[in-house]
Design a protein around this nucleic acid. Structure first.
Length: 255
DNA sequence: ATGTCCGTAACCTACGGA
């Protein structure tokens, strides 16, 4: 079973690229973030033409997340408890529960949105069992956290910045401490598996990136391969994020 | 390292957010 996560930075603006990418990469289930779509404008029909069902939450201007699946889709949740913004959606896709998350950015240290980000991540932890290890599930998406110093191009450039602070990293570690595995992906270029490059200043070309899009998988899942699809970040009108694609040793029809 | 891109509201341009 092939799964992927991708912050598309508007599913409307990215639709031709998304449809091409689905046709080429053939993922069975995809976690999408930043659809920037209202449900009435979400491209259900175009996705259905390629065999994908979709569960989407979005209010149009910001945020918006979806799970796409071509192996069946049973809704599990459409919001994170206590946090009604459209940043969390979860569905059963064949043998696997797939959750798509768009963690709040945090804006800057000292901004109320930074505290909101930490609260949000704490609530995400509370969705996981405390006395047992999660099974047959993946939580993936744009976490807006670089888990280690090696997950940014130069940690010195991030002094007094969000995404790299200890409280943010601790909040993500709480998820891996609960048993989820931060799946290591082959990088698209260089020695670090960056998934995001700013649009500005030629950041992609200079590989000034960050690894902030994560796939957190339950430990029972066999990872056959995982890679950053850097090709999808290139060319005309890309998203500023690349997809992460993971091949699992899971029979997609089981479960 | 702030040089781009997105959607929106209101008009062919500015703005908030990332």
């Amino acid at each position: 079973m092939r799964i992927a996560t991708w912050n598309v930075n508007s599913i409307g603006a990215r639709l031709p690229r998304l449809l091409d990418w689905l046709t080429t990469r053939e993922p069975d289930a995809v976690a999408v973030q930043e659809t920037k779509a209202a449900d009435r404008t979400f491209p259900y029909a175009e996705l259905a033409d390629l065999g994908y069902e979709a569960l989407h939450v979005g209010d149009g201007r910001w945020n918006g997340v979806a799970v796409l699946s071509r192996v069946g889709l049973i809704p599990v949740a459409t919001e994170l408890p206590g946090h009604p913004e459209p940043r969390y959606v979860s569905a059963r896709c064949g043998a696997l529960t797939v959750t798509s998350v768009y963690v709040p950015n945090g804006r800057s240290l000292g901004d109320p949105h930074y505290d909101y980000k930490l609260d949000w991540l704490a609530s995400l932890r509370e969705t996981l069992p405390t006395t047992s290890t999660p099974t047959r599930q993946v939580i993936m998406g744009d976490f807006n956290v670089a888990p280690t110093d090696d997950d940014v191009w130069d940690i010195a450039a991030f002094a007094d910045s969000t995404h790299v602070t200890e409280p943010e990293r601790a909040a993500v570690r709480a998820l891996t401490d609960a048993g989820l595995v931060d799946v290591p992906a082959r990088p698209g270029k260089g020695d670090r598996a960056f998934t995001y490059w700013d649009y500005r200043a030629g950041a992609l070309h200079k590989n000034l990136g960050m690894r902030i899009d994560l796939v957190l998988a339950s430990p029972d899942l066999q990872v056959v391969d995982a890679f950053v699809d850097r090709e999808a970040r290139k060319g005309k009108l890309p998203s500023d994020h690349a997809p992460v694609i993971v091949d699992l040793g899971v029979d997609e029809s089981a479960g």
